[in-house]
Design a protein around this nucleic acid. Structure first.
Lengths: 201, 201
DNA sequence: TTGCAAAGCGGACCGACGGTCCGTATCTTT
DNA sequence: AAAGATACGGACCGTCGGTCCGCTTTGCAA
């Protein structure tokens, strides 16, 4: 006898305490990463303790450290991804490349400025390169397709990689955090740079 | 009574066995990092064992893991740094920026292609960002000063950061290693990109 | 050549961390 | 209410970077 509901999602409703603990863990992790200087300073035990649960619960809920951070990251990134995939211009689809490319990069820069601790934690957590993360692939493809509409660009794929590299979390952290560059100044610098890549005046 | 020689260098000649062991350790580490898939797979004990010395010797000689890798890196980078600081054009000083900037970045790209394992090991080793490494500062300053001679560039400092980001080790690894992009094709793509940044209309 | 400190050696040892396990407690369903 | 399923939690484990200290080697000097 099959009690499984017919909708394709094979996910069963989590138990109430499980859901509550998961939320507590996310909140605790977010808070801890926000306060600390270096993401590496926060241990998994710290997170579990701060959430008031055992370590087993933490690992049961998320699997491993990387997945925990990825879950945090995904939650914060979701509004931006929504704005990009079905929001109004200049981020949403249907915007001419000459406006959309700078807008995308500016949004990404702002996101990294606003969530430095998270992005640093994510890039520092995985032992494997950030380029294998699924969300990088999405952003690259998005930027590549936008760049494809810019006249005179020989290789939108490489250009997309290079532009995304200019807003990498640790570079942003270096400029904004260590060297204390002002947020708006940084945005302006990036804007000038992007315009130059796109092709002048 | 002062037995210290008068020349300012307070470094005492290392003992013969120490020098031999240090060399053996460097060779062993280089070999191991070259063979492995992921730098993280090589432990300090592995290196010591491969060199035929104890772990204490390894840490006595280099201090910690990061320093070991940095020593390897510095040894390999030295010829390039020499070519840049007092070699002939197009790398050496006295080259017009329009030629020197592409040459520098191409040389850096080739270096990272040739020493992928080392650079990945270095960037992956330090828990702190690569931007705090001293050699990054040197390359940034070098590139910045070259870019200062390019007309119409609003902020050579940011541009230098952005261009250096385009040849970061893990991006190069992603393109050349994972996606299997051909070496010369990659160089060509980078060249086009750099020209575009340099040569706005 | 012999003596003797200083320098170096090496591997047992340590603390920390990510991750696992399983007896017990809690929830959900009938 | 009873039973089965699910989750809890913290003791536990393997590994790794790094330290410590008794023993050996080296190089200087008499």
């Amino acid at each position: 006898m099959e009690t499984e509901p017919v909708d394709g999602t094979s996910a069963r409703r989590p138990r109430k305490d499980a859901a509550r603990n998961r939320a507590a863990l996310l909140a605790a992790a977010d808070d801890l990463f926000a306060r600390c200087d270096t993401p590496g300073d926060i241990t998994m035990s710290d997170v579990a303790a701060a959430a008031g649960v055992g370590k087993g619960t933490l690992f049961r809920a998320f699997g491993d450290r990387t997945a925990l951070i990825a879950a945090l990251y995904a939650a914060r990134l979701e509004p931006l991804e929504a704005a990009v995939s079905h929001g109004p211009p200049p981020l949403g689809p249907g915007t001419p490349p000459a406006q959309r490319v700078p807008a995308l990069l500016d949004a990404l820069l702002c996101f990294k400025l606003d969530h430095r601790h998270l992005v640093l934690a994510l890039e520092g957590a995985g032992s494997d390169s950030p380029y294998r993360a699924e969300h990088y692939g999405r952003w690259h493809e998005l930027l590549r397709s936008a760049l494809a509409g810019v006249p005179g660009l020989a290789d939108p794929g490489f250009t997309a990689h290079a532009l995304l590299a200019a807003v990498r979390a640790d570079l942003v952290e270096h400029l904004a955090g260590d060297r204390g560059t002002d947020r708006d100044e940084l945005r302006a610098r990036l804007g000038e740079y992007v315009e130059r890549v796109l092709g002048g005046p």
